[in-house]
Design a protein around this nucleic acid. Structure first.
Lengths: 191, 191
DNA sequence: GTCTATAAGCAGATAGAC
DNA sequence: GTCTATCTGCTTATAGAC
């Protein structure tokens, strides 16, 4: 309701972007401070527990942004195959054009933190569950039973996360386009 | 042929393990030095360009180790569906039992370096291509034409990398077991 | 080729004025 | 709530003895 972003939110927004693209350990506090335009002391007032506390909020924000994005795309097409393919192809185009590299995936944060921070691992786990559940809803609307919908959604989400990783390493969306194509094969088994 | 590992190899072996599990930026030189039992000066003698040069060799070693592992498993079963499922289920069990967390994936390194080090990104890209080509070979042996084999292998590799990421975040191999199950669906279209 | 000592800089975190 | 100055420790990297 108030469109003026407060200092705390600016920290979280900046951190969300930097952690996603560069990673948690590659992003220093100085960089976050500089880009959010706020001083050091202000940071520790809002996040007394420091960098990890900020990262937790950043992961939650990333998760919500990505969830909105998936929901938006899936709503536009009633057929679940076409809808999910549209979502995957959209990501493929972002990566190919190097247009937007944020709010695509939290895989980097998940892999960086699973062995070193239990609370950040849990946040990433929750994010993945939320993403999967959006696909589950879409598949159940199309008449697929819950158990099958869950299993397929988990595989689709795995395929997307892995294809993003390989596409980024290759600087080319081909792995994502290939994944989109196979969605129809995976989902055709239950009609 | 000489089974005595020299200093340089010990650096690479240690780095390969630490970079895979903790990540490139989370692993300090001191930690690598301590675990390889070699002093600082020795390191810069063998790797004049420093940490990035070591990482390049570490990625190459990780790639070769993972390639051998995939080849070994795929050789044991002639049916490509069963063989690939066996490989995925093996990884799922490692993660579930927290038995071995190394030589499973290079996704973390790929995501950490794609935007910051062109030479490490290229090394990860090559690694992914090598992994995919092993699956391509297996599918072509089963009579699938090259183009189709390549497309399916890319999707399978994406699915595996993504399922590893989500499984690690959840501390549970379910995403990998679900992926293994869907391999038969993906490959059944061409018989 | 191997090792130690140390440089130079940046990390995350804190104290305390305002 | 905001800001500056600073502490401690760790980072990568180098110099030079052996």
């Amino acid at each position: 309701m108030n469109n003026k972003l407060d200092t705390r939110d600016r920290f979280i927004i900046t951190a969300s972007r930097l952690f996603q693209v560069q990673g948690y350990h590659a992003t220093g506090l100085n960089e976050i401070l500089k880009e959010s335009g706020a001083p050091r002391g202000s940071f520790y007032y809002h996040f007394p527990k420091g960098k990890e506390e900020l990262a937790l909020e950043a992961i939650k924000l990333s998760s919500e942004t990505i969830q909105s994005d998936i929901k938006n795309t899936l709503e536009k097409l009633s057929d679940p195959i076409e809808a999910i393919q549209a979502q995957i192809e959209k990501i493929a185009e972002f990566i190919t054009k190097e247009e937007r590299m944020q709010d695509l995936s939290i895989s980097l944060l998940a892999l960086e933190t699973y062995s070193s921070s239990e609370c950040l691992r849990e946040a990433c786990k929750s994010a993945f569950i939320s993403f999967v559940n959006i696909y589950v809803g879409k598949l159940m609307q199309a008449g697929i039973n819950e158990e099958k919908a869950h299993e397929l959604s988990l595989v689709i989400q795995s395929m997307i996360e892995g294809a993003i990783t390989i596409s980024l390493a290759q600087k080319d969306g081909t792995p994502l386009f290939a994944a989109a194509k196979q969605v129809s094969v995976l989902l055709s088994t239950k009609y």
